[in-house]
Nucleic acid binder design. Structure first.
Lengths: 347, 347
DNA sequence: TTGTAGGCGTTATCAG
DNA sequence: CTGATAACGCCTACAA
């Protein structure tokens, strides 16, 4: 209700506002004695500086906007958790927005963030060209932008993602090493990330002299409800399995959702994992270990992605000079593989 | 870089700042002609009002702070997602903080939020008395506080949670209906939420003339690493199962983590679900359906919890008058049960 | 209908 | 070492 202000403190203490302000900010031009008195009194009165006034004066709000497709999935919630940790280490706050993979919602999110006076944006864009003009304008004028995860995006800035080609390659090779050659790859939205994982998959096949079977490249529709999605995927797998001669013996899932869902579907279809079908896939969820069978996963280094994103953004925020001069880098981090029962072909 | 301000617009337009401000805010005291000119020019120059200045003037920041134990788990990320939706409908932003169940971290989070100038707080406290004095002071003076989920907390405000007693009762009865009487209950932190779910469990047993077996009430330690946690739980279950005469035939998990993890552990122990042990538990994850066997769950109504929290908080923010006069309510929402294979005892 | 002036709470500059 | 004063960008009485 009745907030204590500098002015009030000054009045009661019989000092000027500026003296009080300086004392509280530990200015060297204030005597220790005065500082002590002021600080003690401020504490007594439970004085809290008004952040808005401070930020107005300073021209910064010490908050960072984050836009990602959706908060719900494990990869993103890990990203958020880590962004949080690093941001707060630097005394920055996070304001999170989701785009739901829609350019329109993304536009709103960007505007809402600007409207909130954030100092910078960290974004995984809705798609490869979504809001590109808007982001470009913002980045070049008011507010620096950093891109993560979906880094195939034509904006000249720091980009932080994983080496999707290599990850796809490694996962596929792991299956081949186990003796599986008929490998289905499950793909989500046909965006850069997916394309590169797919390219890695194809390269691994090629290196092992296995021909790419187009029927094994399965795209799944995310826009439907969970049920429709499940039924769609189930149908596709059932169809592939029906002909003994061409039935696959392994599955590689390129997204969290695809990878975890497919296990349930295989159970429903009473397909043995890994005996009939080995399964590996991208997934950052802790649940991988609790699935039955335990799921082999490719894990993205969310902590590193987050720490680099924050670090680079803060660099840009601090460095007010012309951003067009900077030599921006693209970081492609390595993912790691956890092998569990779903690819255990030893027996 | 160079933000356009009202002052600059006014200068170029040869008008006063106030005219421009009023025109942009559609004040009735400005002629349509002037409004048109001003608005057009503002758009041309891509004028964006400085939110910090505005908020300083208006005394509000239009942002809400949220504190919860951890962002990572499905229940909380659903809560966040929903809070988000409702908040943005009211033009409020969300600033999220996690307490990691630590009072100390929670204290920091609260202070960081105040320091950011938020208009209100929505919190699920670290424990039943954490930061109680601080929150009380804040709530009664500067900034209204709403409590959700862990609502056994001695603060006079709106509280939004689920009917944990009833939920525990229903889950247990479901198992009993299926013919299972030797039911283990897995409990996490011994806080109000857990206690009530346990009380519901005990009441269901009592009503069905089943004696409570203290050995079936299993507490798990969350503070350890995932591995230790798994091993701990595994050991406890293995121990209970070893004596044929007293071995349980059902498990009720009182938290998301416990419920999903236990399936993996049972698979490891090669215990058949539901044949040997039926499993049901609290869980808000979409993955329940992909688990093997598909997991029967008690689902908390995250959308309702979120919408009520936002609604009540905004009410308090708008209503600046003395909060000590308000007749605060406690909302206890119903959870819902999804029965899947892990409790399917029909065969 | 438009303009002037004051203030929101803070920090920064400069003078005393 | 301390104090007066201006400024950050916006809004809003009140005066013209």
């Amino acid at each position: 209700m009745n907030k204590v202000t500098l002015k009030e403190l000054a009045k009661v203490l019989n000092m000027s506002v500026s003296t009080v302000s300086k004392a509280l900010n530990d200015s060297h031009e204030i005597s220790d004695a005065t500082k002590k008195i002021v600080k003690k009194f401020a504490q007594e009165r439970n004085y809290q500086p008004n952040p808005l006034a401070k930020y107005l004066k300073l021209g910064r709000s010490n908050s960072i906007g984050v836009i990602l497709p959706s908060i719900g999935n494990p990869f993103h919630s890990q990203i958020i958790e880590n962004l949080h940790n690093y941001a707060s280490q630097h005394n920055f706050n996070l304001i999170i927005m989701q785009s739901k993979d829609s350019e329109e919602i993304e536009t709103k999110a960007i505007k809402a963030l600007l409207n909130q006076g954030i100092d910078g944006i960290i974004i995984s864009p809705a798609h490869e060209t979504s809001n590109i003009e808007l982001l470009k304008k913002i980045h070049e004028s008011t507010c620096p932008v950093i891109i993560f995860d979906r880094i195939n995006y034509d904006l000249d800035t720091y980009k932080i993602g994983v080496n999707n080609f290599q990850s796809g390659f490694n996962a596929t090779e792991e299956l081949i090493k186990g003796g599986r050659k008929k490998i289905v790859i499950l793909c989500g939205k046909n965006i850069g990330v997916t394309k590169q994982r797919l390219a890695g998959y194809e390269e691994a096949l090629k290196r092992n002299s296995i021909e790419v079977n187009q029927n094994y490249i399965v795209y799944c529709n995310y826009n439907n409800s969970f049920e429709e999605f499940d039924n769609d995927l189930k149908e596709k797998i059932a169809y592939l399995m029906q002909d003994r001669a061409t039935a696959p013996n392994a599955i590689f899932g390129t997204t969290d959702t695809l990878t975890t869902r497919v296990l349930g579907i295989l159970a429903d279809l009473e397909i043995q994992v890994p005996a009939e079908l080995a399964v590996i896939g991208f997934a950052n969820t802790e649940i991988a270990n609790s699935l039955n069978p335990a799921l082999s996963t490719i894990r993205q280094p969310t902590a590193e992605i987050a720490s680099l994103s924050i670090e680079m953004l803060i660099k840009l925020i601090a460095n007010k000079k012309n951003r067009s001069q900077i030599d921006f880098q693209e970081f492609k981090l390595d993912s790691s593989i956890q092998l569990r029962k779903s690819t255990d072909l030893s027996s």
